[in-house]
């Protein structure tokens, strides 16, 4: 790992207009950084601001959102100063995002092969048609899809969720991004396929030296897969810890989340339920 961060975010705020003319602050002063070859997990419940924070990085927030930050940098590029044109050049090429649901994120009327080839065509316009196709097939093979040539000619509705997810990963990896943001990439998948998909992303990180941000509400998964974990609650980072130190988490929210997971060794007793405290949402509330 080099010491210079690939991603550097400081004091990020994101707000949405409310009906009464005020602003709802969805992200309130988030700061984090990411090194190349690092796997950073962001966990939290729905609405905690975990997806928004990384969307701000890619520049794909909804237009009516208001965003401000003291610093928002990617590989030394000041994203706050970058023009929309520059940012669009970064997206898809040097930074890309894998979304949760392949059903909504793949184009339903185009064969998956064509969609993967499109990614190559944009990235490498000089390639011939045959070469593009060959590379797309290689990419499908790389994400462990059996008989990739057959899958190239299928439409998204003809493949399973797990395959759809791998097709999306193939599209994102076609351009060999340096930053990969995966937003709940495996929550639609079975546990057995999930392991495969994670190992494919792991390969990208270790072999090609990319940085990965994995957004999930699954603490078990994140603590097993990532190097470092940020825990978000009500728009703030309440705790940041090494993934292998998860069991030593100190914040009551993190501990509560861990405690309420059912376990194979369950005794059948009621699960401990998260007792929320108003203080968690305040910066002073951090232990």
């Amino acid at each position: 790992m080099s010491d210079k961060p690939l991603v550097d975010v400081e004091n990020l705020h994101i707000a949405f207009p409310r009906e009464d003319g005020g602003w709802h602050e969805a992200v309130r002063g988030v700061s984090f950084s990411l090194l190349a070859r690092e796997k950073l997990g962001i966990v939290g419940e729905s609405g905690s601001g975990k997806s928004l924070s990384s969307r701000a990085l890619l520049g794909v927030l909804p237009e009516h959102a208001r965003m401000s930050a003291d610093r928002l940098r990617f590989d030394g590029i000041d994203l706050l100063q970058a023009s929309p044109r520059e940012r669009r050049k970064l997206r898809g090429g040097r930074m890309s995002m894998i979304l949760q649901d392949p059903k909504f994120s793949l184009n339903p009327v185009l064969k998956v092969g064509r969609q993967i080839m499109e990614a190559f065509r944009i990235g490498y316009p000089a390639l011939s048609g045959a070469e593009t196709r060959r590379r797309a097939i290689d990419m499908l093979e790389a994400v462990h899809i059996r008989s990739p040539e057959r899958v190239m000619d299928l439409y998204p509705h003809q493949i399973s969720g797990g395959m759809g997810q791998r097709v999306m990963i193939a599209m994102m990896m076609a351009r060999e991004p340096e930053l990969l943001v995966a937003d709940e990439p495996t929550s639609a998948l079975d546990v057995t396929v999930r392991t495969q998909v994670l190992s494919i992303m792991d390969e990208l990180v270790t072999r090609r030296g990319a940085g990965l941000i994995l957004i999930s509400h699954d603490l078990k998964l994140v603590s097993r897969f990532c190097n470092r974990v940020l825990v978000m609650y009500a728009g703030r980072i309440v705790e940041s810890l090494r993934a292998d130190e998860m069991h030593n988490a100190r914040h009551p929210y993190t501990r509560g989340l861990l405690a309420c997971l059912p376990s194979i060794q369950s005794t059948g007793d009621p699960l401990p339920v998260l007792q929320r405290e108003a203080g968690w949402a305040n910066p002073e509330g951090q232990p």
């Binding site: 729905s46 509400h217 989340l257 309420c260 997971l261 059912p262 009621p270 699960l271 339920v273 998260l274």
Partner: peptide, 15 residues
């Protein structure tokens, strides 16, 4: 559901 909400719903079902 989120894990925190999952715990509440599972407890409700058991009860």
């Amino acid at each position: 559901l989120d894990v925190s909400i999952q715990a509440e719903v599972l407890n409700l079902l058991s009860r």
